[in-house]
Structure formats: C-alpha cells, structure tokens
Design a protein around this nucleic acid. Structure first.
Lengths: 374, 374
DNA sequence: CCGGAAGTTGAATCGAATG
DNA sequence: GCATTCGATTCAACTTCCG
C-alpha cells in the first residue's frame, strides 16, 4: 500500500500493509491475521437475523424485495448469539484499549448484540437512533411503521477514559447545540445506491454515506484506522477514505468485494483543511495565569472582580490573587469567595478595561493567538 | 370475565375484585394472586440498573439529583437478569394469549430486557423510541446528549394473530400518516410532576401521561385490563382510568402507593374516546448546518463569503467553517469576522452559484422542502 | 396620582446520567 | 488544574394600562 493513497497530515509511513484493503473471508478467522490493539474504531453492520415467513406484498400486490440471503439465516437465537459472541471477541482483540465500536441493528438482533457486548466487557457510551426520513411503510397495518434503526456506541473497556469524541465539532455542526442521540437521515437511495447491470441493488442493506460520515467524524481522527468486519459494498471504506481515515474491510462475498473495490477507487479524498477536526478547549495549549503577568497583559496590583462586581481580588506578582490576607489561584479563590467546590477562574474573574468589564479568558485568548503567530 | 364487559365503554360493576386497585408488595409474589390469562396489556417501567459513580455537577456547580434509590441497585448483570426473568415470567402467566406487553428502558438495561423477552417466547412487534423534547444535557461533553428512551412492544406469543392495534386511530391522530416508531414528547415536569410538601419530586422517574396515553390508545380497547407491575406513582393507572380502561398496579413502597391513590382518585374519566393525543403541528424543523453537507447540497472545501465579499471562509467536512486556523459554527464565525457578539450564519454566508452569490439560507429552504415531500 | 390587573422580561430551577 | 448545559417551567421584577 503506497503512502500516496493516504492524505497528508496523517501518520502514513508506518501504516500497516493491511490498511486500506479488503480481506476476503470469514471475519472471525480473518481477524486472527491482524495484530492485537491495532484499530481505532470498529463499525459493524452484522446480519440482522430477520425472521421472515413467506413473501410480503404491497397493497398493489407487488412483491417486496426482502432480505432473504443465506448470510441472514440462523437456526435459533442460540446460534445467532454464538455467532455474535465470536465476532465481537475477535474484534475486541484487535481494538486499541481506547478504541470504540459502533454496531447497527434493528429490534430483531440489537438486544442480543447489546447484551453480549455488555457481557464481554464493552462499556456503552450511547445508543444512537437513526430516524429514517423515508422508511418503508408497514403494509399490513398491524404495527407501527418501523422508522428507525439503532446503533450502539461503546468503548472497549469500562476504564477507557481517553476515547475519541469530537464533541466541539459535533456541537458546532449542530448550530452550537450539543449533538443528540437521535439522528435524522434519508435511507440510501438514488445515485448513491449501488446497482448491477440489470438495475438490481447490489446489496440489500446498503447504509447511507451520511450516516457513516457522522459516525466517523464524531469518533475518529484523520489517520485513524477504521475496521468494518461486515464490509459489504464498502460504505465504511468509501467514507473513511474521503475523510482521510484508513480503513480495513472483511467480506466473504466476491460480488460485494468487487463492487466495493470499484467504488472506493473512485473516491477522491478531501483535502486536509476540510477534514481538520475542530478542537475544543481541552486540546488548546494550556496558558498558566502568570503568563498574563509575564507577558505584560496584566499588571500586579490590578483589581479583579466577578461579572457583577460582588467580589474583588488583587493580582499578585507570583500569579496568585489575593482577597484580604489570603491568596490562591484564580480557580480556588473563585470557588472560595462563592463558597463552591470548584470554579473556572478564567471565566469568573474580570478586569476593568476602558470602562467596561472584560473577562480574563479574553486575555488568555490573546496570548494563545500570539503563540500561534510566533 | 364476560364478553359483554369487554365491549362496554367503561369499566363497570362486574370487573374482577382486583381491578382498579393497587396491590402492595413485590410484583413476582403478588402476581401469583392473579388468575392466569386475565390482563390485556402490560406496561412495565422496571428499574434501569443505572451504574452511577459519584456526584454529577452542572457547569454552574449545582448538583444533579441522581437516581440513587435502593430499588435500582443490583450487584451484577447476572442479578439484574435473574430479576428480569422472574418478573417477565410472572407477568406472562397473567397475560391473555392475545395480550401485549410494553417495557420501557434505556441503554443500561433495555438490551438485557429485550434478549430475555425473546428467550421467554415474547414476540417483538416494535421497538419504539421516545424522543425527549427537553432531555438533560451532557454536562461533561464526553458523549452525545442522551435524548431518548426505548420501549419494546411485544405479543405474548409469536403465534398471536389478533392482538389489539388501533391502526386507524393512530393514523388519524398522525395527520393521516401511519404512526412511526419514533415518538416525540416532553419529559414529565410542571404541574404534572408530583411533588411532596417540601417541593421534592415524589418519584425520581415519573413518566409523562402523554406517553402512556399513546401506549394505551394504540394497543388496548375501552374496558381492557392494564397491568403495571412497577406502578410507582400511578401514571399508568391515572391514564387508564381517564381513557376508560381498567388498571391493576403492583408497588412495594408505601409513599408511592399513597401518592398514586390520591392522584387516581382525582382523575375524571372521559365520557368520549374521541379525545386523541394530538401530535401538534411543530414549528419549522430546525436544520443543522451539516445537514447541507450530509445531503450533498454543499461540498467540504466550498468557499463561503458574505454578501459583499469582504470575508470568506472554508466549509469543512465536520460542519464547521474555517477562517485561517480557526474553525467554528457558521454563526460564531460570522460573528467573529465582523467583531460582533452574534450573527445569523444562515443569512450572512453565501456561496457562488452559477456566477451569482446565493445565501445559504436558500439551501436550508431546499432541505426543508425535501423533508416535507419525503 | 394611586391601586391593582395584566402583560413582559429575565433569572433561577431541574431532569433515568453508567458524565 | 479548570472544562462542561438545553429546554420547559416557574417565579420574581418590572412595565403598562385602566379606572
């Protein structure tokens, strides 16, 4: 695999040989070929174990093209459970300790998948509901229209603390409101839906790229490795490549592999500027309070107050602030004057600047900005 | 139980002695007192087995009042599974062959509940998503906002063919479109939320009556018997009585029984079932900016400018826009480049389209119009 | 000009949370 | 060390209007 296949700014020289390939075969046995702790994110769209009896016809007597493939046939819940446990275990071995996994399913299988994930030690972060903009109607009128599917997002371990979640990016993309657990997307159709020469859909359950894009943008960084053990026609690979991530797919059926290979080859990765992840304050360089003093933005002896002028403190040369005889950090003193356990001093304290109160976090922003240009 | 009673419009004199009562005690042992095959619908809101560590504070340092009741403490998944199997078995005995059961839960427990239901022979009809209009935010920014809960609706047996589903009523209530599996309701608050003398909520997880009303209206008929084995403060009973159904509740805690008794006594049954749960015409749906990208109307890398071309920004794949090294939402970046506090990014930013500038609000209009036709 | 009703604005509160 | 919150609801504070 040449580095040229990967976009810039990503760790490329040491990308493993199996990256950005489709491995043919059964996912449990093929996963044994991958090193442990080597992938950042897993997206899995396993067989749903639909239990369909006979044909379903629309009110006009046309026949619904159901999922009746061999790969969705299981003899019992026990057989499906064993299958599920096996692939989840195999996937867990290759997942990094801080990696996360997504599994999508419907009410036919998602409860079994979720239980087994918990039994194996995965730690649930969210269940995400994909609300379909254009779901298939319920033709018999005996149930509610099945208008959603469910995704489970989980970390490899309960103890994982530094899994990737691009909170700020999701929030900014959602008009500055934090992203909820219910997502709204159309199903995969139109030009995006892969068809064969005779116009038949290549895969019965192809997922929309927009769904995968949000999955990947929320829980991975450029250059990460994303594994899809049920690759199908390669939606995960196509979106990963477009977004500057590495993929690895496992698939049994030659037809699907052929379609996915062709599809992914046609994908043009976005330039590196377009895929940069919006970082939250967590990722910004830490600026100690006394940097403000050292840089001359703030003089010792300056008076700090809260936004309403109820409390005041004096800046001291050593980077502490004083109230009466006591001195402490901006955070501890902010907490103490309010009688709270904790306080963010950067957003609590203000200075008087040209007659108006200005939060000292603004001074920190100026320091950071000058750090970048320096 | 006579057939005549089943078709009457209201619960009447020949109802069994245990109907419209609250039975005190543990639900598994108390259910043994009820005759088998005697209830039409079960609604169950079992403990969720939340596994909370320590306190959670809001960004303003106020403390979140968590669910820390004894009844939600289990030693292990195995203990929770045994509890779940026991009450589901007991409930199944008293359910009529054509009866159905609803169980509500969250990702903490719903996968275990669903698996066990399938193992015991219940047959899933739908999973229903309750999308909360006003969920609690995620204060730490480490996950998606947990904005929904899940209900499972199942028949007692796979073979049940004549369970009750008021398809036409649901469709009529939904502006003549089939009722979908995703429902939208506010959480229980305001005057509906039961408070004690000191203003504290009586029950930590009281469900909204609107939710129960749709459950009952969709899956039962007037005069039916509805069992709630975790009665709590009696939402199921209050709504059942109002809608002309019989209820029977089982509850262990005296405080909850007292509150439920008083609450239900104050309920006036409706004289007509023409009252339906109105979904209410929603305001124009909010379209987050990244919907434009996800729908393909706007490509990452596209340049945005203001109407006079003084400022420009780059669209990124994650739904933010970038000016230089900084990225933010369309609104915040619009404000920043102008040096303002706020800005409506939808009307500020434009794209070049066929040689002319087009405001991105026009793209939003296109998305909304395609949502309507879908 | 006074008193009270009625309407408006803004602050404060709080919710099944593996945080 | 210091980052992190959304929407419904209620209540207090204030304004306006009318007799």
């Amino acid at each position: 695999m040449s580095n040229a296949r990967l976009v810039s700014q990503v760790p490329d020289a040491d990308t493993a040989s199996w990256c950005n390939t489709i491995i043919k075969g059964d996912c449990v046995s093929r996963l044994e070929l991958l090193p442990e702790k080597s992938v950042d994110v897993v997206f899995a769209d396993p067989p749903y174990n639909l239990q369909l009896n006979g044909d379903l016809t629309r009110p006009d007597q046309s026949r619904v093209d159901a999922v009746d493939n061999d790969w969705d046939q299981f003899d019992s819940f026990a057989a499906y459970d064993a299958f599920t446990r096996a692939w989840l275990l195999a996937v867990r071995r290759v997942l990094k300790p801080n990696g996360t996994i997504w599994v999508i399913g419907s009410y036919h299988n998602i409860f079994r998948v979720g239980s087994i994930m918990q039994d194996l030690g995965f730690w649930m972060l969210n269940d995400i509901v994909w609300r379909k903009a254009n779901p298939m109607p319920n033709f018999r009128g005996r149930r509610f229209q099945n208008a959603h599917e469910t995704m489970i997002w989980a970390s490899r371990d309960k103890e994982a603390r530094s899994y990737t979640f691009n909170y700020e990016a999701m929030k900014a993309a959602n008009d500055d409101l934090q992203m909820r657990s219910d997502w709204h997307f159309p199903i995969c159709s139109g030009g995006e839906r892969l068809k064969d020469e005779s116009g038949q859909k290549v895969h019965p359950t192809q997922k929309p790229e927009a769904l995968l894009a949000r999955v990947i943008l929320s829980s991975s960084r450029p250059g990460d490795v994303i594994l899809d053990p049920f690759f199908g026609t390669g939606t995960t690979g196509a979106v990963a490549k477009r977004l500057g991530r590495n993929y690895v797919g496992i698939e049994r059926e030659d037809d699907y592999i052929a379609a996915a290979t062709q599809r992914i080859a046609a994908v043009e990765p976005l330039d590196s500027l377009s895929i940069r992840v919006t970082a939250g304050k967590r990722a910004e360089p830490r600026v100690p309070f006394n940097t403000l003093i050292e840089s001359g933005l703030l003089q010792p002896g300056t008076e700090l107050t809260d936004a309403k002028g109820r409390y005041s403190a004096l800046v001291r040369a050593d980077g502490t602030i004083a109230v009466g005889n006591e001195a402490a950090s901006i955070h501890r003193m902010g907490a103490r004057v309010q009688g709270l356990e904790a306080c963010n001093g950067w957003t609590f304290w203000h200075i008087r600047h040209e007659g108006k109160l200005q939060v000292i976090d603004e001074l920190r922003r100026q320091v950071r900005s000058s750090m970048e240009t320096a």
